[in-house]
């Protein structure tokens, strides 16, 4: 029987209240949203907070909307909300691709976007998807709001830029014309972490790639990203040869380890193949050839 260690529990009534409680209880307090990352960690005693601050009543953070030239995703939006969001799909089908293979439908009813990326599991899919689309993270504290660009958000496995007394409130993604995106994942079964997964976001001007993002999950890519593959593609033509070169760079630039999900060379192979597939699909979508 897996049971968390003893813990105190309080509910936050607003973002300000959540932050005030984080300040009051100090670094041994943790926010809990869907709980589908934190509670399993608490059962395994890998996490042992002294106080849980439940933010499920902050339903005003559960939005997914377009505001100006940005897609804005509130931290309390659930995985299911992102899966079913028409506005997110319209601009970034990568999110539907990813959400279809994140956990399972019942878990997606509870797990939140903010909780997933703050957990910062090295195999977490949305971290790779957000790296591909170069999302900005909005972090709030009692002294105001700061915006952290994606590469600076992840500091390492299970570690993010969110500090003591701070809370992630929103993810912002610029809406770019001529943009296509896609996510490709290999998993052993429904609900499992990726063996390897790759997200690609590509912006075309005619046949020229003006901007590109490649995100990788589960293969220890720095900041969930392949800057090397992006550099090969940026400014060049959207051709199979370029995609192959970028895919090879993505595979070489990551650092997978062998574990129960497969040997390192297999994961590296997947990184190459999935980068290629994600680039093809993202490009087809940028050209309006595939939904």
């Amino acid at each position: 029987m897996q049971v968390p260690a003893p813990v105190e529990y309080e509910r936050a009534t607003s973002v300000d209240d959540a932050i005030a409680k984080l300040e009051r209880y100090g670094p041994e307090a943790r926010l809990i949203a869907g709980g589908h990352s934190l509670i399993p960690m608490m059962k395994l005693r890998l996490a042992r907070p002294e106080v849980l601050i439940d933010i499920n009543d902050l339903t005003d953070l559960a939005y997914i909307k377009r505001e100006g030239d940005e897609l804005r995703i509130g931290a309390m939006a659930r995985h299911r909300d992102l899966l079913e969001s028409h506005v997110a799909f319209e601009y970034y089908p990568i999110f539907r691709d990813a959400e279809e293979v994140i956990a399972d439908p019942v878990v997606r009813n509870r797990g939140t976007i903010g909780g997933s990326i703050c957990q910062a599991d090295p195999s977490e899919d949305l971290s790779a998807a957000f790296a591909a689309v170069k999302a900005d993270m909005v972090i709030q504290s009692s002294s105001g709001e700061r915006i952290v660009p994606n590469p600076e958000f992840h500091r390492g496995p299970y570690t993010t830029a969110v500090g003591d007394g701070e809370m992630l409130t929103e993810v912002r993604v610029a809406i770019r014309p001529g943009c296509g995106s896609a996510y490709e994942k290999v998993e052993r079964r429904v609900g499992d972490w990726a063996v390897t997964a790759v997200g690609a976001c590509i912006q075309l001007d005619g046949d020229t790639i003006t901007e590109v993002g490649i995100g990788l999950a589960a293969v220890s890519a720095q900041h969930f990203r392949s800057a090397g593959a992006e550099d090969i593609l940026r400014g060049g033509p959207a051709t199979e040869e370029q995609f192959a070169a970028a895919a090879a760079a993505a595979a070489e630039g990551c650092n997978p380890s062998s574990d129960q999900r497969g040997p390192a060379d297999y994961k590296r192979h997947l990184a190459r193949v999935l980068t290629l597939r994600a680039l093809r699909r993202a490009t087809a979508r940028a050209r309006g050839q595939e939904a």
Partner: peptide
């Protein structure tokens, strides 16, 4: 009204 896995919900939640 939503199906949830009750092994991953704390009672006070």
């Amino acid at each position: 009204g939503e199906p949830v896995k009750s092994c991953t919900v704390l009672t006070p939640m």
